[in-house]
Nucleic acid binder design. Structure first.
Lengths: 233, 233
DNA sequence: AATTTTTGATTGAGCGCTCAAAATAACTTT
DNA sequence: AAAGTTATTTTGAGCGCTCAATCAAAAATT
């Protein structure tokens, strides 16, 4: 059917916010100067909003349509099924995540340690550590095994992230150890990613008593105390 | 339908399997020497089987009843709602987990490092790292934020685990550092738990290319290389 | 006038849950 | 022990409801 739903996304600005309790306006006067892609992005954003607010189990075509201020029919028109819509939403979620850490990486200058710290720090920005945002990740991850499409999307983005992180860590070993050490770099990436994943999980499961700031400082401390020493001969 | 029911729980032995297309057998001859608790355990086990196999989204009263070889009505009879059944299943899942790591802890002898290693190792037994078992955790965790009952259950068990682990780590600092250091012990527990949580996540999201054995050796290496040095003055 | 986009009533499947009746077990009386 | 009585457990058809998906018609755009 459809192979490529969408690529990286700079969200469509969400147009008319519907106030659900309001009386039906006679003419919604819908501006549609945008093309199909913009509408798709709007609907995907509405989907993510619904998942963040209601969870996957209580996200229906009706909740998404309500969030977008459009009818259910239009969802099926642009994405052929609810499954396609959810897959597109997960793709957009990963794309946004990639956008964030890549921007941090690009802004970090040439020093590999700075690069690594920038990427780690990006994992704990307010946008990513928002409880609803985390809940969305876990909602999808909870269905990973039963929806292979989700796993494919994750793998695609994860491979890229791992590759870029490995480059950085390879630079780090090259700088500090003299000779580059691929296996050591690979393990460093694994350790960092494992630790930050664990911190996300703690933030998700125990949001009170474990703040974003705590997680961030733990992650940075981990890099300094555990990763950096491993780059030195 | 059912291939291997389960072994560790002492279920009521499941009565005769019903073949739906077959003519009605004259006497199903249901032995019910068990009491209500045994039936409850059987139904909870069937629930976990269904979640492991189908995920939370596709687990219905019908799938659970089918797994148990009983009717849907009996589920509502013993647990008043589907929600109550799922909560009981999550509770049982946590209870089994606690059983496993506590047994490892009790069997580990007096040395605190041995205790710590035993608990960490227990996290990576085949039973716990089975893909379906991991998927079950993540299925429930994906709904945590939208089902406060799940969060309450998790907190109850997690608090106990943290307390016991902290005792062990406190012993460790006492032994290696001379004076006990509560804040350091607390951080050690946090680090270990974060890291093992992250490993579980990697096992769940990337089951091929990341084996149980790999995760176990990474966890043990983490304790030796990161945790142990932190206990020494 | 032709095309694209949107609507919303409708359909049919599947869901949780109810409940009267049946089956079984437990208890009492003979 | 046997029969009769009560209590408990199990069934499964069915109710009301929600859901994803359909589709003919309407609206908006080209």
């Amino acid at each position: 059917m459809t192979k490529k739903e969408d690529e990286k996304q700079e969200y469509a600005e969400v147009p008319p916010k519907k106030h659900p309790e309001q009386e039906p306006e006679p003419r919604p006067r819908r501006e549609r100067k945008g093309n199909a892609d913009m509408r798709r992005r709007q609907l995907v954003a509405a989907t993510l909003d619904s998942v963040a607010k209601n969870g996957l189990a209580r996200t229906t075509l009706a909740t998404v349509a309500g969030e977008a201020g459009l009818s259910q029919g239009v969802l099926v028109f642009y994405f052929k099924s609810k499954g396609g819509l959810l897959a597109a939403a997960l793709h957009a979620k990963y794309a946004r995540y990639q956008e964030i850490w890549q921007a941090a990486l690009d802004a970090a200058g040439p020093d590999p340690l700075n690069k690594l710290l920038a990427v780690v720090e990006a994992d704990f920005t307010p946008e990513l550590c928002d409880p609803e945002a985390l809940a969305t990740w876990f909602a999808f991850w909870g269905e990973h095994r039963f929806t292979p499409q989700y796993a494919e999307i994750a793998e695609e983005f994860d491979a890229n992230r791992m590759a870029r992180l490995t480059e950085v860590c390879l630079d780090l070993t090259r700088q500090n150890g003299g000779a580059e050490d691929a296996s050591r770099a690979a393990q460093m990436v694994l350790w960092i990613d494992t630790f930050t994943d664990g911190l996300w999980q703690k933030l998700h499961l125990n949001p009170q008593g474990f703040t974003r700031e705590t997680a961030l400082s733990l992650a940075l401390e981990f890099v300094h105390d555990v990763i950096v020493p491993r780059t030195e001969r």
